[in-house]
């Protein structure tokens, strides 16, 4: 546990050691603003909720989360510090979990900085704050899923740019599989059970469910097992590729 905490702290501090973290948070906030107010038509809708804000989160995360996760392992492999890390008395799982949690914590910090939007909507109207809270929670879970993919991919290469691109492509797949257009395509020929399977793999399906304000056990299990599987794969990839 101490080891996880030690790595977690080092990783989290590492984000803030360079201006990249601050740039990232600013970009994140600007983009959420653009998406919410311009594309989402926050004012025009005339409704006191944060739907336009949360609706764009999957698309925002698609590019921003791989940017956070790309360095997790690729950087260690490039710099050779992975040899130092993996000869300290820790297990690979502890290192994987610690790094993942640090990246997740950083994402939560960025997400927390969107609070002015929440204040705005409360100032303008009388929104259902419980729904907003569950949406934040769902958004964070989804961010964890993106990060787990990104972390695993980051361990496959020494090159952060490659890690970024591959993670974006894979995450895009997991968004698309819940997209009405894609599902319609499957519906035209595949049995319902396959359509459901494809759809249930998607971040979108589960995120929109939580976004409505209902936390269903199935959605929780989906995100938990999704993160679990990718981190498990992450451990295997690190063990396989660390010395290459």
């Amino acid at each position: 546990m101490n080891m996880i905490l030690a790595i977690f702290k080092r990783e989290l501090r590492n984000y803030f050691a360079t201006p990249v973290a601050y740039v990232f948070i600013v970009v994140f906030l600007v983009l959420t603003g653009v998406f919410t107010f311009y594309l989402g038509g926050f004012y025009e809708r005339g409704q006191a909720d944060l739907q336009p804000f949360f609706n764009y989160h999957p698309w925002l995360y698609l590019f921003l989360i791989p940017a956070i996760s790309m360095r997790l392992w690729a950087e260690e492999r490039k710099a050779g510090t992975i040899e130092l890390l993996m000869t300290l008395p820790i297990t690979t799982s502890q290192a994987v979990i610690a790094k993942f949690l640090a990246a997740w914590a950083f994402t939560s910090i960025a997400l927390a900085f969107t609070f002015p939007i929440w204040i705005t909507v409360n100032y303008l109207g009388d929104p259902d704050n419980l729904i907003i809270l569950t949406s934040y929670f769902g958004s964070l879970l989804m961010a964890g899923a993106f990060l787990a993919v990104g972390s695993c991919i980051s361990a496959t290469t020494r090159n952060q740019v490659i890690a970024f691109i591959i993670a974006v492509v894979i995450c895009f797949g997991f968004i698309l599989s819940g997209f009405p257009m894609v599902l319609d395509f499957f519906k035209s020929w595949a049995p319902q059970i396959i359509v459901n399977a494809v759809s249930s793999l998607s971040f979108l399906t589960h995120f929109t469910a939580i976004e409505r304000g209902v936390i269903d056990l199935r959605d929780l299990i989906y995100f938990a097992s999704f993160i679990g599987c990718w981190l498990f794969a992450n451990v295997i990839v690190v063990d396989m590729k660390k010395a290459d």
Partner: peptide
């Protein structure tokens, strides 16, 4: 105690 070749360490620390 292990000193790997090239003494890798986290450069930002």
């Amino acid at each position: 105690g292990y000193l790997p070749e090239g003494a890798p360490a986290y450069p930002d620390m």
